[in-house]
Simulated assay, not measured.
Amino acid sequence: MLNLDVVWTSEFAANKWIMPLPADAIPTDKMIPATVNAATYRDTLVGAPYYTDGALFYFRSDLLKAAGIAARPKTWDEMKTACKAILALPAAAGMSCYAGQFDKNEALTVNFSEAVASAGGTVVDAEGKPTVNTPEAKKGLNLLVDGFKQGFFPSDAITYLEEQGRRAFQDGKLVFLRNWPFLHASLSATDGSSKVAGKFGITSIPGTDGPGVSTLGGRNLAISPFTANKATALEFIKFFTSEEQAKKRLALSSRAPAYASLYADPAVVAKRPFFPTLLTSLNNAQPRPKVVQYGATTKAIQEEAYAAITGKKDTDTALNDMQAKLTELSAK
């Protein structure tokens, strides 16, 4: 049995390193559609969603209120307008507007993909062919490029991964933050370690014309065709990924389940009040590029996106170079 990050589904399936699962083995009709999509290769289920993950938009609710802003931002422009008002407050002295994860790492592929999708574009099409030489992709990448150029992102955010962003927001240095759900516990800590406990809210990430599109995270369980214990592996996967077990794991872990019903369970929501918001994010989520050579693909995306946001290449050049690299990879 294999425990795979969702990004590896296509590569492992194409190389026959994992095998198709029986259509009736996993209750996919009860699962969030995006999680099933991420476990599917060429319309065949090859993995069982184990847990999932979606982007959340953390914001300083106390500062929005102080600035007289009643509605949480849904778009990048609304966020920038809110930041101008908030950063003029004495209480926001020394703060920055927004951060995501922009170091040259898998997290940059996530943030780039979200920016492009939130601007109405795609990184690859349904056949895995690259589509980054489009006006929508340019608009998405420019959201990140302009964020640094215009000073809405702190300059050191170019080195941020998830943990650096958490610390910056938790220490009261950011108004807005894009990150994963795992932050909620540490941000809410009342032991003095968090300066924002009771002062933040959570909503969907922003887009260009409305709420944005999250990149899907999570893991799938799959079966190796080379094992002598295929039946046993399948029985374990059916047990381990069942709705009953998913609910039990919520008492032990912060991992988000694949079952939609658990996001409305009163007992679950009482402990994780952000779950309804997370479900909205997951229902709108898209996978990272579903391609056979994911490792090389994400490397190419990171290189060109990083070149653009650091000013080493203009947006058009970076996207044209990315398109060329991804086209070469998709032809192999």
Rank of each mutant, 00 (worst) to 15 (best):
K138C: 09
D53C: 10
D314V: 10
K313D: 12
Y51Q: 04
G218V: 09
E244R: 01
A305G: 15
S193E: 00
K104E: 12
L187K: 04
N220F: 01
E304M: 14
V36A: 14
D171G: 07
T40L: 14
S193F: 00
T52F: 15
Y263D: 04
P130S: 02
T35D: 12
N179Q: 14
P49E: 09
A307Y: 11
A300G: 13
P276R: 04
E244A: 09
K325R: 13
I18F: 03
S214C: 10
Q323P: 11
F148Y: 07
K80R: 15
V291G: 02
Q150I: 01
Y160P: 04
V269K: 05
A324G: 12
N15V: 00
I223Y: 08
G311V: 09
A85L: 13
Y263C: 02
G140N: 00
P49T: 06
A107V: 12
P49R: 11
G217P: 03
Y263P: 03
Q245Y: 09
S61G: 06
A71K: 14
L87F: 09
A117E: 02
Y263V: 06
L141Q: 09
A233M: 11
A256D: 13
Y41D: 02
K195V: 00
M19T: 13
T131H: 13
Y51L: 09
C83N: 05
Y160S: 03
A66C: 07
L161C: 03
